[in-house]
Amino acid sequence: MATSSSSFRIGIVGYGHLGQHLVDRILGDGAGMGLTLAFVWNRNADKLKGLVPDDRILVDLSAFEARKCDLIVEVCHPQIVKDFGVQFLSRAHFLVGSPSALCDPNLNRELRRAAEQHGRTLYVPGGALWGGQDIQRLDHSGALQALFIRMSKHPSCFRLTGDALSGWTEGEGRRVLFGGSVAELCPLAPNNVNTMAAAAVAAGTLGFAGVRGEIVSDTALSDFHVVEVEVTGTNGFSVHTVRRNPAQLGAVTGSATYNSFWNSLMVCKGHGGRVYLC
């Protein structure tokens, strides 16, 4: 990822559970891998005190350019992608941890244009998506006909913008919260459906409007998130996968996704001015 004569500088935007994991890995393992932590930004900068070296804390995100990053990693909220994504790509490669933001077609076009213009790569991590690159290859071959994803979680693990979960009680069982296009789902559950958004990027010809998704609340899922993917191709081809991702009650992100995201970060060394699923 970096040469022996220079380090690969990474900025982390967001310091929730995933952001903390990445910062700890970079500070702990990074030196031996040629990685340097350029900055960490969090909406509440006080949260960083004592956990991140003072000289790596960035209080004003609009001042990120002074830190001269090779890669900027967003792991907080789609609004950051909307507000800063194009600026990030003007200065560095950009790993977007909230790809649900890409459901906005105008923003999607702007980010792709910025990546091409500046020769930077817009990276989209697979997260909890299993077989994303296989879906992408099928799509590129022209053989992808349909893609459906169902995400089932304990209700405490959902962060929804509406009231679809109002009044749930422990032990109520299974409730389908919403089914429709991923374009419709992303604004409803922007922090929960990034796996679906990654799938929509992989299935480029179908896109956010063409990939179908469903989110399910299930009080029996106290230890796992379940992600089901159904792929339909030509001539009767189909694949159905079920992934059980260990997760604690209330956790938006399953535990296996942390290592998946770290592995995605390891890929982000520059793949030209384009979107790259990693």
Rank of each mutant, 00 (worst) to 15 (best):
S62G: 11
M266P: 09
F148C: 10
Y15N: 05
A31D: 15
F224D: 15
M196S: 04
A2P: 11
S6A: 11
E110H: 01
T121L: 00
A115L: 05
G273Q: 07
L102H: 07
E170Q: 10
D83K: 12
R174F: 09
G213A: 08
L160I: 06
L249Q: 02
L206I: 09
L206V: 07
V23I: 00
G213F: 00
V182Y: 05
W130T: 13
A256E: 15
G32Y: 02
I26N: 03
S166Q: 13
P105H: 07
G142T: 14
I135A: 03
Q87C: 02
F208P: 13
M266N: 07
N191F: 09
S238C: 11
T234H: 06
G97V: 10
L95W: 02
S238Q: 09
Y276H: 10
G97F: 03
S264L: 07
G204R: 13
L18Q: 00
A143S: 13
I26M: 11
G19Q: 05
R175S: 01
I135K: 01
G126L: 14
E74P: 06
A164I: 08
I80P: 06
K153Y: 00
N235P: 02
I80T: 13
Q145E: 15
F88H: 12
H77G: 10
L265F: 05
L102Y: 04
L27E: 05
L129S: 09
N235H: 14
R43A: 12
S100Q: 06
T257G: 09
L185K: 01
K82P: 08
V75P: 00
E184P: 05
D139M: 07
A189S: 02
P190S: 04
W41N: 11
L61C: 12
Q117L: 14
S90P: 04
N191D: 07
R274I: 14
A247D: 04
A143N: 15
S260T: 12
V59Q: 08
Q133S: 15
V86M: 04
V211W: 12
T232D: 14
T234K: 14
F64L: 15
V182H: 04
V13G: 12
V86L: 01
R243Q: 14
K269D: 15
R212D: 14
T169E: 13
T36Q: 15
E214W: 00
N44T: 12
E184Q: 12
L27C: 08
G14H: 13
H77C: 15
V96T: 11
L37Y: 03
A92W: 01
S4D: 14
L102D: 03
R150T: 14
L249S: 00
V40N: 04
R244P: 09
A115G: 03
